[in-house]
Design a protein around this nucleic acid. Structure first.
Length: 423
RNA sequence: GGAGACGUGGCAGAGUGGUCGAUUGCGGCGGUCUUGAAAACCGUUGAGGUUAGUAGCCUCCGGGGGUUCGAAUCCCUCCGUCUCCGCCA
């Protein structure tokens, strides 16, 4: 959510930058500012009325003590009138505030000035590409074939017990997943992230806090009986740990990591995108989150990106980094980098991480502020990134490392798997 | 799930209708004293809105609603915590 003060002061610039995200509903911004004007005016009227009524009520107390009943009764009448007036003003103010709030929630975050215009992933900018793509021969198999051949993942049984997009990992497939979890969590710990294990279900307020609601309602699994949502990423519970908090500047940065299962409805996906592990309804991920001083968030973003790259390098996977264009940058993000690994048998790049700076957008929604040394308060900046998502890493590992009759496990994972080959 | 108790400022804990945004203690910050520190003493110390403003004014005692001239204090409701019972990984 944008700060109303910021919107008031930089309206034209904001409209211009939102166009980069293909947000062209400028009428909504005019409406918000108009409502803001009304809000402040009504607030002022209400304050004055309440002040008068309060003064009058206090005077009555005094008159009662002095046994001046007639004067007290007179004052009561006056106060009753004032009360009626303030009640009306209060209702009007609530109405205006609610409308304004609702509209504000629908305005996306302003993209960073370096974000290029664009409509789709084709307009993303290649920042970096590194690593050696493996030689691919004709008998190279895609990961879903390998998973079957080596009995690592059972997609059909997943369909039976739940539905498509809910695979069952087995044997060395399951152990490899466990190895990834430990490797990613240990690495994050070493990089200074405090480990947490959050709930996988969150309430509505948390969904609004990080910006999934109301924008992505329908993408999350919802449990109506309790009005809970299954988390689409650990970003939601972790960042919301700091909702409604005022953090001392000297305690920054706050750094957390968490492993969690993630649940996404992925309505509308189809074709090769959902084949095998490429896109699932339930998957595993280690997420990293930081809460930082506004002056340091872009520096932090680069640091997080470099950390993520280091993981991919340790896994010996060829990768590339993209800066997302406006059209591909999510509702809540100001700047996002995607990290993709090359999956040899499919001959395609798979997104395994997305790291974003949300600036004050989430902090504003969830009232997460920092207190500076001179006692001033301002919204913090929040960031998060996948470090990393398991399924596509697994897909690339299987496809890229296949040899005659076996698959080689990268050296860094052998400590965790206790096997060198899948055979 | 059933019965009962309770939710007050960073924490502890008063206040049960009238200048209470709230006694007090601890913690934090500033000062006196000290070579320095501790102790002691003095002062200060929540959040939001409006505003050029660290001036004034208004709002906030779990959330929402109600009674009243006036509510932290009474009523309703929701949420949460605790105790006992039941169930249970």
């Amino acid at each position: 959510m944008l700060q109303i003060q910021y919107l008031r002061d930089h309206k034209d610039e904001i409209i211009k930058r939102l166009a980069v995200k293909n947000f062209k509903d400028t009428a909504i911004i005019d409406q918000v500012l108009e409502l803001d004007q009304q809000r402040r005016e009504t607030q002022r009227q209400l304050d004055d009325t309440l002040a008068e009524s309060k003064k009058s009520a206090k005077a009555i107390g005094q008159l009662m003590k002095e046994n001046k009943k007639d004067e007290a009764d007179k004052a009561k009448e006056k106060t009753t009138e004032l009360k009626q007036k303030s009640k009306e003003l209060q209702e009007r103010l609530n109405d205006i505030t609610n409308k304004q709030q609702k509209l504000l929630l629908d305005i996306p975050n302003v993209p960073h000035e370096s974000v290029p215009a664009g409509n789709s992933e084709d307009d993303n900018i290649l920042i970096k590409e590194d690593g050696t793509k493996p030689e691919v021969s004709k008998d190279h198999l895609p990961h879903w074939e390998l998973a079957k051949k080596f009995n690592l993942i059972d997609f059909d049984q997943g369909v039976k017990i739940t539905g498509a997009g809910f695979p069952v990992y087995k044997n060395k497939g399951a152990r490899l997943q466990r190895a990834l979890q430990s490797f990613f969590l240990d690495s994050a710990l070493e990089a200074g992230y405090d480990e947490v294990q959050p709930p996988l279900l969150v309430n509505e307020a948390s969904g609004y806090g990080t910006g999934q609601l109301p924008d992505k309602d329908g993408q999350m699994y919802h449990i109506p009986a309790d009005n809970f949502y299954l988390i689409p990423t650990a970003e939601v519970p972790i960042t919301n740990l700091y909702r409604d908090m005022i953090v001392d500047e000297k305690d920054l940065p706050l750094k957390n990591s968490a492993y969690s299962a993630c649940f996404r409805r992925e309505a509308g996906s189809y074709g090769k995108d959902v084949r095998g592990l490429n896109r699932l309804h339930q998957f595993d991920k280690v997420e990293i989150v930081q809460v930082v001083h506004p002056g340091k968030s872009y520096e932090t973003l680069e640091g997080m990106l470099n950390y993520i790259i280091s993981l991919v390098e340790k896994l010996e996977l060829p990768y590339r980094v993209l800066k997302l264009c406006g059209g591909d940058t999510s509702f809540a993000a100001a700047l996002t980098y995607d990290v993709e690994v090359f999956s040899a048998a499919q001959n395609r790049w798979l997104e395994v991480s997305s790291v974003s700076n949300f600036e004050a957008f989430q902090a504003n929604r969830m009232k997460l502020r920092i207190k500076t040394e001179d006692g001033k308060k301002q919204p913090a900046h929040t960031l998060n990134g996948s470090a990393l998502a398991f399924p596509r890493i697994l897909a690339a590992l299987l496809e890229n490392n296949q040899q005659a009759g076996k698959i080689k496990v990268p050296r860094v994972l052998v400590n965790y798997t206790n096997f060198e080959y899948i055979d």
